[in-house]
Amino acid sequence: MTGQEEFILQTRGLTMRFGGVTAVDGVDFQLKPGELRCLLGPNGAGKSTFFKCLTGQLRPSQGEIRFEGRPITGWNTHDIVRQGVGIKTQVPNVFDDVTAFENVWLAAKRRHRSSEAGDVAEHHLKKCGILHLADVRVGIMSHGQRQLVELAMVLAGEPRLILLDEPAAGATGQERERLAEIVLAAKQDAAIIVVEHDMAFIRKIANYVTVFNRGAVFREAMLDDILADKEVQEIYLGKKSHAAA
């Protein structure tokens, strides 16, 4: 691949305005195939709004988003998913009235015949460490368990790009460990973007990170360099950088 196509995801001048407020301000961003990138920044930095533009939850005011060289700016979430993008939002998007197996089976059925979807669902439930919950109705599960069910659903769709918004939110220490293992394993088959506040989780998965501030990309560097950057500490990490050590 050459030019734009060397990036699985690319934005140019991406901007999102709400009235007179510019939440995302001319962001240029590139992600290579197979890369895992964490997006960091203080509350109001623009990273979540940027994520919502990528996932079709918001239509950008201007700029361009390209997936595998193809423009997807302003597409709705359903059409973006159909192109091969797996999306996990902050609030688990699951069917509460059916079992974990049925949730993941429905996701697998989008790309596999019904006769194969069961095996695919079982594989991803096992991969996410929740095969023992296969016959449990999702509505009675803990928040962390529901997060894992949705992650299994995302993986069952066999996406080439995975977008995760605060996957570790509400997770216990053990669930966080499992999530980190799953995300790192998923990197073998897909590029991944993770928006996250949990520094303990970030330390387990992050390599190269992008820091947002005031709607723009403030810094991009290796995680260790970001943690040692005094300007980044001032705008975001502060004492958290030491507490997470």
Rank of each mutant, 00 (worst) to 15 (best):
Q145I: 07
A107T: 11
R113F: 06
L106V: 14
L184Q: 11
L58D: 04
T73W: 07
G238A: 04
G238Q: 04
A108N: 08
G26D: 13
F201W: 04
E68I: 00
I182C: 01
L151P: 01
P33S: 08
K204F: 00
Q188A: 14
Q147C: 09
H78I: 10
G74N: 04
P167R: 01
R82A: 13
L133R: 11
K239M: 14
E175Q: 12
H124P: 00
M222W: 10
R66T: 09
K230S: 15
R59L: 10
M141G: 09
R37G: 00
P92D: 02
F29Y: 12
D96R: 08
P159E: 07
G56I: 12
Q10F: 07
E68Y: 02
D119Y: 09
D119K: 15
V91D: 07
F201T: 06
G3C: 06
G26E: 15
F29I: 08
A185L: 05
V194G: 03
G173Y: 02
A200L: 11
D189E: 15
G19I: 04
H197F: 07
D97N: 12
I130F: 01
L161E: 05
V138H: 09
H242E: 15
I65M: 08
Q174T: 13
S241C: 13
F212T: 04
S142F: 07
G63E: 09
R214M: 13
M199F: 04
D224Q: 15
P159V: 05
Q57Y: 15
A108S: 09
D96H: 09
E166D: 13
G129E: 02
L9A: 13
K239L: 14
L161F: 07
A191P: 10
A168L: 01
H242R: 14
E220I: 00
P60C: 11
Q30W: 12
K204Y: 00
G74S: 05
L184R: 14
H78C: 05
P92N: 02
R146G: 01
M1P: 13
G157N: 06
E181A: 11
G20P: 06
P33K: 06
N43Y: 10
Q233H: 04
H242L: 14
D28H: 12
D224C: 03
I226K: 02
T77L: 10
G129R: 01
G129T: 00
K187W: 07
T15A: 11
K88W: 02
E64Q: 12
Q90D: 08
G170S: 05
F95Q: 00
H112L: 04
R59V: 15
G139F: 02
E64P: 01
E158D: 14
E220G: 03
M153F: 05
A185R: 06
